[in-house]
């Protein structure tokens, strides 16, 4: 038996050596560059400014790759290409980063490709911003927030992990997927973007959020309604017209902050009057 064990061990060590050899020859450099880019893409908005917006952040994320592809004046020219005005959604930006990496890699090997990288980026920023803003800020985050904060109101600390997981699982997955797909497919990333149907998912998430908020408001109204008396619970139904009244006020362009503070003052003075009358 010890002989068999040592044979397995030697097989395993040969396999490991072969693997690491392959990794270092083919994949290692690329993986390292992709990893560095992914890591740096987390700071895309670190130096956000009104003039360049995410320009410096984009260059910062591209820098490890560019330094690998180019040297000397070519490197400076490549850096200038990526220091231009840039602004898109911070998560879907990894998709543009991945595709730009691929295009720059080809260019450094002398293959100019079908499309100039600067033009390609310009074409992608707007639509990516639109899809990302809609999906993440308009769909996913409100949904996660309604779930998490709803749980939070019941006093459960589960609110925090639920909120973080509901938001971050799709978020981190799309971040990594975007970079890898972008790098694999180059300018053909446009097709993937069409296939994901993010705007349609946004619509579904928004509808779900509205339903969740309705559950929450019903729960809040029931909690506020005077308990004990049989007719007391009916008063809670007033919550619904109240919400629609507030919708009307917000649609008129009155700031929610102002409405909230006015509501607070209204309640305080109402209670003060009740106290003075001795009710």
């Amino acid at each position: 038996m010890p002989g068999c064990g040592s044979a397995v061990l030697s097989c395993w060590s040969t396999f490991c050596a072969w693997c690491s050899d392959m990794m270092s020859r083919v994949r290692y450099n690329r993986l390292r560059v992709l990893g560095a880019t992914l890591w740096r893409s987390l700071t895309l908005q670190g130096s956000w400014s009104f003039d360049g917006m995410q320009s410096l952040g984009f260059l910062f994320a591209m820098l490890p790759a560019l330094r690998r592809y180019y040297q000397g004046p070519e490197l400076a020219a490549a850096c200038r290409r990526h220091l231009r005005h840039f602004n898109t959604h911070p998560v879907l930006a990894t998709l543009i980063l991945g595709a730009s990496l691929r295009l720059e890699e080809h260019r450094s090997q002398g293959d100019e490709g079908l499309i100039d990288v600067v033009k390609f980026k310009e074409a992608l920023v707007g639509p990516c911003a639109a899809m990302g803003d809609g999906f993440f800020w308009g769909g996913l985050r409100p949904l996660a927030a309604a779930l998490g904060a709803g749980l939070g109101l019941t006093g459960s600390l589960w609110a925090i992990p639920v909120f973080l997981l509901v938001y971050n699982l799709p978020h981190l997955w799309l971040r990594v997927l975007g970079l890898l797909q972008g790098y694999r497919r180059g300018y053909r990333i446009v097709e993937s973007l069409q296939h994901w149907h993010l705007p349609d998912w946004t619509q579904r998430l928004k509808r779900l959020t509205v339903v969740l908020l309705a559950v929450l408001c019903a729960w809040v109204s029931a909690a506020v309604a005077p308990a004990g008396r049989p007719t007391g619970a009916i008063w809670g139904l007033l919550g619904l017209p109240l919400v629609f009244l507030l919708v009307w006020l917000v649609r008129r362009g009155i700031s929610p902050l102002l409405i909230g503070l006015a509501g607070c003052l209204l309640i305080l003075s109402g209670v003060q009057i009740c106290l003075m009358q001795g009710w």
Partner: peptide, 22 residues
Amino acid sequence: VLAAAGPWLWPVLPVLGSAVVL
């Protein structure tokens, strides 16, 4: 006043937030 109004104050915020979404 605050002691008496306490239970009435907190519902303002979730209801208002839902109204903004709608």
